[in-house]
């Protein structure tokens, strides 16, 4: 009985404060700086309880942008495995969704959904901060559902 109560409180607390991990896997930084712009006072993701963390073991939502280069692929897979369930993977930008303008480059591995299951796609090159916010909101909804 007590255990159920504790579990319910923890779940409620977790839902209200999702932690993000942002990884740039070989893009031009355009998506990265728009993601950082989402942190700053004008677009402000912190009002939704979101916090950007660097440790995969503490994160709930993975924000991945960039076309995956061959050199970074093993690290990317390891980060995915180190993130605990339930987790939501968000592919930000054209490069993560479909390799974008680098589709026939020699150093790029497949788009992100060939490497890991992706839950939310945010298109754009780079997507506007408003679009990123909308995508992250969708990710939060999905994540709350996964908690049920």
């Amino acid at each position: 009985m007590l255990f159920r109560l504790v579990e319910k409180t923890l779940n409620y607390a977790r839902k209200k404060s999702p932690w993000f991990l942002h990884l740039d896997t070989g893009g031009c930084n355009g998506c990265s700086i728009e993601l950082f712009a989402v942190l700053n006072p004008r677009y402000d993701i912190e009002r939704f309880g979101g916090l950007s963390k660097a440790n995969p073991r503490h994160t709930d939502i993975l924000l991945i942008d960039g076309a995956v280069t061959k050199k970074i692929r093993p690290r990317l897979e390891r980060i995915y495995q180190q993130t605990p369930e339930p987790k939501v993977v968000v592919a930000v930008g054209s490069c993560a969704i479909s390799k974008g303008i680098f589709h026939d480059a020699y150093n790029i591995d497949g788009p992100l959904d060939k490497i890991m299951p992706v839950d939310v796609y945010i298109p754009g090159c780079p997507p506007k901060p408003e679009a990123i916010l909308q995508g992250v909101m969708k990710a939060l909804q999905l994540w709350e559902e996964k908690h049920e």
């Binding site: 061959k70 050199k71 020699y106 150093n107």
Partner: peptide
Amino acid sequence: LLGKKSPKTP
């Protein structure tokens, strides 16, 4: 710049 899996002398 190139890694182990990249093509040689591209």
